[in-house]
Every structure is written in structure tokens, then in C-alpha cells.
Design a protein around this nucleic acid. Structure first.
Lengths: 145, 145
DNA sequence: TTAAATTGTAATGTTTTTTATTACAGTTAT
DNA sequence: ATAACTGTAATAAAAAACATTACAATTTAA
């Protein structure tokens, strides 16, 4: 009998937080918001917001201004930010799980399953992203009264 | 300034493990497999396998036999098990995250975002499940040589 | 009819991941 | 100059995932 260890890990709150941030920035129409204010709305730590903003900045969604009176604002028109792109910018792990530890290579199923699962997940995720891509930040934000 | 706390939690390895189990059971064509053997292929603890099997049993995918020489086997034809149904049987949390802690109710965005995110996730997840539903366990398992 | 092998499940412990906190250098406004 | 920010690293705490141990109940079969 074979034995070792396996795990398939998952996404977390990055997408929710990023979309929350983008929505806030859209709602204030160009006004700079600082990380403490944003954290107050999300209800999380400001450092987490700044990390999330750093990623959004890296992907061209936001601009930030340092120093007193600084903060962040959208870097593009909200009609040009689609949620599929946000998802891709933000995702760090495979949606349904990525095997970090190895299934048993001495078992025919264990030996091949990682590849088969990845193929399956990639296709499923493509369907999900396609759905998200049909919506823009403008659409999403317009739902808030 | 407002303040509390928020988190959006995620899925884990249930789907991968369940599909691994179902694939093994299909490959051995009705032979009973015990949890230790399955755990050896997945490379995880047998108790985790038994818990996963309990859930698969609850949803009618497998049958188990207790006692010496016991184990599990598929309860349906693999052509009648579709991966969307497995996904639904196995999922415990919202795909993209479910807010457990509360965004700030004093902020217009914080107050409404949970509902809006949930609506968005539901639609996106429906697209994902639809994709998975186009494949059966028989299809998936046939990819293994 | 007893011993062995198994499921089912609970309780507990360990590890990993996520999130919060602290700290501080660098930037900008006043 | 001082205060209010960003950016980022290091550390700590909390939460989640997973493993381990334990054992009652079940079944087989010697």
C-alpha cells in the first residue's frame, strides 16, 4: 500500500475585496479615498486594502497618490473595467483547487489525476470568467442606490 | 470613521477529492475499495476519505459496506453521474466567497455589497456548473489510461 | 464464537492559510 | 517642520484545513 500526502487549495477573498474597493472608487467619482476609509467600509485592516490596491495598481485599474491628502482613484473609465479582467488580475490560485502535494504516482489514477483535474478546472473557470466578462464595473456599481 | 470586520471565505479540496474517489471506484468496476486504499491513492488521511464518502453516499453517488472486507462502490452508472451534480453535492461554500463578517452598514456600498456580490457569484457559478454538467464521470474516467 | 477488518463518527491536535497588527521609510501638503 | 498618507516588511493572531487517535458498531470467516 502506498502513502504520502495531498492537498488541493482554493481562492479567498481577494475578488470580493477588490470589487468592493473598485465600487467605492467609482461611487465617489474621482475623489481620492484613503486606505483607512476603504478598510472601514469593507471592515478589514487598512494594510490589507493597501496590498489589494497595490495589485489593482499593478494591473492598471487604479492610481494612487502618496503623502498627505493622498489616496486612490480609478485609473480607467468604469465602463472599460470588466469583471472578468478583475477576476484574472486578482486570482492567485486555481478556482477549484490546485494540487500542491502529490497524489500517489504508483496508482494509475493518482499519477494522472492532477493533469485531468487541471484541464477540467481550466475549462470550467473559462466559463465562469466569460460570464463575469459580460459585466463592467459601471454595471455593477449602478446597482447601488 | 466606521469599523468592524469582514471576510469572504472559500471552497477547498472537496471536489478534487470526491472526483478522485469516484474515478477510482469507476476504474475498478464494482469492486469494493476501502478507505485506506483510496487514501493511499489520494495521499491523504483515511478518515478524510470516509467523511467524503459519507457525503457522496448522502447524495446517492456511492454505496458502502461495513465490516471485514467492506468498502465502497458506485451507486449509479458512471454515465449517469455528471460533474455538475458532483460539484453541487460537494460544495459547502459559495464559490467566490461568502461574507461571514459584515461590511459596514453605515456605508452605502458596505450595506449593499453582500447582496450584490452574492448575485454576481450565483450567476457566475451557474455558468461554471453548466460547464461541468456537460461532462459525466464516465467521460472523465475514460481519460485515464 | 471469537478474532480481524472494516465503516462511521467524534474528539483532539497539528499544520497551513488568512488576516490583523506593528513598524517604519519615503512622499506630499500645509 | 509636521502631519497624513502610501508602500512594504516582519510578526502575531485567528481561522480553516487536515491528520491523528480512538472506539462503537458491523461483517466475515476461521
Amino acid at each position: 500500500m502506498f502513502c504520502n500526502k495531498n492537498s488541493y487549495s482554493m481562492n479567498s477573498s481577494h475578488f470580493s475585496i477588490s470589487l468592493h474597493i473598485l465600487t467605492l472608487l467609482d461611487q465617489v467619482k474621482g475623489q481620492l479615498l484613503n486606505s483607512e476609509y476603504i478598510a472601514g467600509s469593507i471592515n478589514c485592516n487598512p494594510v490589507l486594502v493597501r496590498k489589494e490596491l497595490a495589485n489593482l495598481h499593478k494591473h492598471g485599474f487604479v492610481q494612487s497618490k502618496e503623502g498627505k491628502g493622498g489616496g486612490s482613484t480609478l485609473a480607467k473609465n468604469p465602463a472599460d473595467i470588466n469583471l472578468g479582467d478583475v477576476y484574472r488580475a486578482v486570482k492567485q490560485k486555481s478556482l477549484l483547487g490546485e494540487s500542491k502535494n502529490e497524489p500517489n504516482p504508483d496508482c494509475p489514477v493518482g499519477r494522472q489525476i492532477t493533469k485531468h483535474l487541471n484541464d477540467l478546472y481550466d475549462e470550467a473557470e473559462t466559463a465562469l470568467v466569460k460570464n463575469l466578462s459580460s459585466k463592467t464595473l459601471k454595471d455593477f456599481s449602478a446597482g447601488f442606490k
